[in-house]
């Protein structure tokens, strides 16, 4: 059963407030799975936000920083406003609050992050790879969460995803087919 956005936002708010980091991650995965099935860009965005919040909350230099403490209040407020927008079925308004949360995450990352690539960008790639694992094409998975396709391709290469399902046609067969094709085309 697919949950409503209002319910999902409420879940994100509760888990984030109560610092239930692992559950926040699990929720993010569920949101991405549902977004992949429904082609739901708003749900996908919330899935990436939940993942980024879980990531931030698991880093002690973020959690112990007064900067994050202050930004966190803005995130709470915007999730609550998102619940309100969702109740009104106003997806444009909801997206505007989600964007504000993303800006807060980026702001925290800029002040406290240690890496050149941002937590939010990494969250997009990570969750796009999940969407790809659910069967979407690389372009569709990248598009759903707004990830960079090249980053996604490279990330997927380092996972075991392609080892999990057997190809219907193995490499030997494909190589032989390619040889036959190029040779026959040369003759023609």
């Amino acid at each position: 059963m697919v949950k409503s956005m209002e319910y999902d936002l409420g879940e994100v708010l509760t888990l984030f407030r109560e610092k239930r980091v692992l559950e926040l991650r699990g929720l993010s995965n569920r949101l991405i799975r549902e977004a992949s099935a429904e082609n739901n860009y708003v749900k996908a965005e919330l899935g990436v936000i939940a993942y980024a919040l879980h990531k931030i909350e698991s880093k002690s230099h973020f959690v112990n920083s007064p900067v994050w403490g202050k930004i966190k209040l803005a995130v709470f407020k915007n999730i609550e406003s998102g619940v309100f927008a969702s109740k009104k079925n106003d997806s444009e308004l909801l997206m505007s609050y989600l964007k504000k949360i993303i800006i807060s995450i980026e702001e925290a990352d800029l002040s406290l992050g240690h890496y050149a690539s941002s937590i939010y960008d990494k969250a997009k790639v990570k969750q796009a790879s999940l969407a790809y694992s659910y069967g979407l094409s690389i372009s569709q998975a990248a598009d759903l969460v707004g990830a960079d396709k090249k980053e996604l391709q490279s990330y997927i290469g380092f996972t075991t995803m392609h080892d999990e399902e057997m190809e219907s046609k193995g490499m030997r067969k494909r190589v032989d087919e390619l040889r036959i094709l190029v040779e026959s085309e040369k003759i023609n």
């Binding site: 690389i138 391709q153 490279s154 990330y155 392609h162 080892d163 030997r172 190589v175």
Partner: peptide, 19 residues
């Protein structure tokens, strides 16, 4: 190539190399 994201499994590569 596999690590760059090409959809190929370890088993496929090994089978091809064996053949």
């Amino acid at each position: 190539t596999k690590f760059s994201g090409c959809a190929v499994s370890e088993m496929e590569i090994n089978d091809y190399l064996d053949s």
